[in-house]
Amino acid sequence: MKDALSRRERQLMDILFARGSASVAEVCTALPDPPSYSAVRALLRILEEKGHLAHREEGKQYIYFPTQERPVAAQSALKRVVQTFFGGSVERAVTALLTEEETQLSDDELARLSELIARTKEKDDA
């Protein structure tokens, strides 16, 4: 498993997932309250060493990009959140999401979730 990310490393990854790729300068511009250019460059190098990023050279600058597709990274992050904040309980995580006032699911979304729960139950019973 890849190393866990710090808050700032997650911010960098969010920027790169949103843009697809970016130079150090572009990442600096997109960061709220950015550290120095050299600090961002160092963080990107660390993320590359951890296996989260790769780079290509364009002229004199490096262009960084994620090594995983966003859905794969999201699944991994979600597993860590469920484990860390909900003791591994999917039920507690889903309950927390569904009881938020901002959560509004359409009838179609509720039907898809019900179907997924039914399929999961069938699979577990088999």
Rank of each mutant, 00 (worst) to 15 (best):
S38R: 14
E9C: 00
L16K: 08
V81D: 03
V82R: 03
F85S: 11
P66K: 01
L47Y: 02
A54P: 07
E26D: 11
G51H: 08
A18C: 02
P34Y: 02
L53H: 01
E58C: 03
I15R: 00
C28N: 11
I46V: 12
K50L: 00
V27K: 00
I63K: 06
V82M: 04
F86V: 07
L53V: 00
G59M: 04
S23A: 10
V27I: 00
S36C: 07
G88T: 14
V90L: 09
V72Q: 11
P71Q: 00
L31K: 02
L43Y: 15
A54I: 03
E9K: 08
K50S: 01
C28G: 08
L53R: 00
E91L: 08
L44M: 05
L43E: 15
R80D: 10
Y64R: 08
F85N: 11
R92H: 14
P35L: 06
L53T: 02
L44V: 04
F86N: 06
T67F: 03
H52W: 15
A93M: 13
Y62P: 11
T67M: 04
E57D: 14
L44F: 05
A77P: 01
E91Q: 09
V90H: 07
K50V: 02
S89H: 07
I46D: 12
A30G: 07
I46R: 14
S76G: 11
H52D: 08
V27R: 03
L53K: 00
A74H: 09
V90S: 05
P32G: 04
G59P: 08
L43V: 06
R80Y: 02
K60W: 14
L78M: 10
G59R: 09
A73Y: 01
H52C: 04
R56H: 13
F17C: 00
A77M: 00
R10I: 03
P71D: 02
E58L: 07
P35A: 10
S38I: 07
R19P: 12
I46C: 08
L44T: 05
F86Y: 15
Q68G: 02
R70F: 03
Y64C: 03
R45T: 13
S89N: 10
Q61D: 14
Y62V: 11
V40Q: 03
A73N: 01
R92N: 14
Q75N: 08
E91V: 10
A74W: 09
R10E: 13
V24E: 07
R7F: 12
V40A: 09
G59S: 05
E26K: 10
